[in-house]
Design a protein around this nucleic acid. Structure first.
Lengths: 335, 335
DNA sequence: TTTCTCAATGCAAACGTTTGCAGAGCGTGA
DNA sequence: TCACGCTCTGCAAACGTTTGCATTGAGAAA
């Protein structure tokens, strides 16, 4: 690769001048500028970001830690982050941690060595302690997505799951449903607990009885939704199901199809997350959507702001979900 | 951030020694080594990859250009790339080009400035000329995925779509189907043409007549599959449909559900790509799957090999697809 | 004691930039 | 003619590493 000095030689100026032309950091005569620009074009010169980073101690790179880019949620999130970064010439280092604590610290170390200007943590599995200690040394501006990490002073961007769950509950209530089952995710996840709390609050507000045997727990997978729904639908008692996420709702839809229960005629189903896949189901899945890409963009924006003002107090940004009405919910059947 | 000199001072040795301890590049007495290691631990020192990169002119970073990480295909591909890189301490710069020529060249420039050690191109929209010229200057080892770029001397890793399509065709033939429709993707894409060619060859081999009015072209979207299937199923002539990809097949499934055509009783449907979503359909979608993650891993492997031996002749690696038999195909109906 | 070998360590240049400082050249007002 | 101000330009240090070369000191061989 050619260097700034090669360009300077070809243009017949000092490399200082080349630098200033490239960065627009001081006046350069039109003649010199033209010669430099021509030399750059002829040689296909690309200034070394690594030398620049060494000198300025800014890399214009953010590190992004996600459990698994294959999960549509994180794909969309990453996309949002990347999109926001694009506007400000930041690039993104992507790391899949597989929710493994060890990989997570390994990647964190790598990112710190690479001197990223900021960190977006959408993954935070296992013990936070080593992670927090590592970050404490480095003092890299950090934004956490969806999960507060104890001991870490970082901005947080998250979705208001409680409000979303209330939305789902009141939607069903408004359609006249009274016999409603809840299929929650694993209660060890904060998201699950928040969503369940929202359902309960929403149903209570509508004066709907909450039967303990209609509160089932799954693991966020379609298989779990499928199995739980089979069990639940045998009695044909409930007229609607609140699912902890879209994958579980898809499992429910499938169980209903197998059992000949018509949706939404006999049963209404509402999911959570608003993933694209839901719209390809038959019937298309009604869901509580959150603006995942916006979540990513917001996370990046918060980080960019943090770069400017390190002394800003720690922020928490909460994004509101919304109802995506498609075809899997309808009026409660008579009787 | 602390530097190698800070560590040296604390450990009471020269920074040369610290460097050698860190890299294991020459013998260091046990005493000195211990002191250095302790100092590193106490200070949470992380060596600067950017200084190292400047000195050694190796960044241990690959640039990855994909159209859209939100597309499951590219998510999985990226995942494979990243997984392979992890084993060799390479990191990945991720860029979404949105298939926009302009963004593509912009990102390419950024990646070159950042002095990536290699390039994985899964996106290559628009005119290849500026792209090729840019790469010509830089001489960065490059691996292209799925699409040959004219004028660019790069390794290529791709899926054998022709063979996959034959697989699908002969699967249907073996089930006794004779009246088979083909819903291809846009013919301007090489993939579409390859798949169509494979179907035609496969059907001809099985002695099946190919009716021109059963060869329809869509745009790889579920909506297209849905619309074309509606048209096709009105006559109830065909007993099976070969879809150009899974999204179109999902659209077909949906149309069948709406029209009360039972799958696979009256109609068999087979997709292409083997995406996860297909297994959540009802009935679960039979498809021709390709090992996307392995495709990514292979691409990274080829690139790593290329780094070692620049003089290697250009390689082309072809990966074989396989049949994923699920529930949407069955024996042809009698009569 | 002297010389040699060898292990352990340090010095300093270089990588490709940015940027503070300073010099050259020239027109202008006194 | 001189001093001044202004525009344009260049020199050289510094960023944090790696690495070729050199130095030190101790033990062994003579």
């Amino acid at each position: 690769m050619s260097t700034i000095k090669d360009v300077a030689a070809r243009a017949g100026v000092s490399f200082t001048t080349v630098s200033h032309v490239l960065n627009g950091t001081r006046r350069v005569s039109d003649a010199a500028r033209a010669r430099v620009e021509q030399a750059v074009a002829e040689m296909g010169y690309a200034p070394s970001a690594v030398a620049r980073a060494l000198k300025t101690s800014e890399t214009f790179v953010f590190g992004v830690l996600v459990p698994n880019i294959t999960n549509p949620f994180f794909a969309e999130l990453t996309r949002g982050i990347e999109e926001r970064c694009r506007q400000t010439d930041y690039s993104v280092f992507l790391c899949n941690t597989d929710d493994e604590s060890e990989l997570q610290t390994h990647y964190l170390q790598t990112l710190l060595e690479r001197r990223v200007d900021g960190l977006l943590l959408a993954a935070a599995a296992g013990e936070p302690e080593p992670l927090v200690r590592r970050l404490g040394f480095a003092r890299v501006p950090t934004v956490v997505v969806e999960r507060r990490i104890p001991g870490l002073e970082a901005d947080l961007v998250r979705v208001d799951h409680d409000a979303g769950a209330r939305l789902a509950a009141s939607h069903l209530a408004a359609l006249g449903h009274r016999r409603i089952a809840c299929l929650s995710g694993p209660s060890r996840f904060l998201v699950s607990r928040e969503r369940t709390a929202g359902w309960v609050a929403g149903l209570q507000e509508a004066g709907i009885e909450i039967r303990a045997d209609w509160m089932l727990e799954g693991d966020f997978s379609a298989a779990a939704g499928h199995a739980l729904a089979h069990e639940l639908l045998r009695q044909r008692e409930v007229t609607a199901i609140l699912a902890g996420n879209d994958m579980m709702a898809i499992g429910v839809l499938r169980a209903a199809a197998e059992l000949g229960v018509s949706v939404p005629g006999e049963l209404s189903v509402i999911g959570f997350d608003g993933i694209d896949m839901g719209s390809y189901m038959f019937p298309a899945l009604t869901s509580v959507g959150h603006p995942i890409r916006e979540l990513g963009e917001m996370a990046a924006s918060v980080l960019l702001e943090r770069l400017g003002k390190r002394v800003l107090p720690v922020r928490e940004v909460v994004m509101a979900p919304h109802l995506i009405e498609r075809a899997s919910t309808g009026p409660a059947p008579k009787g």
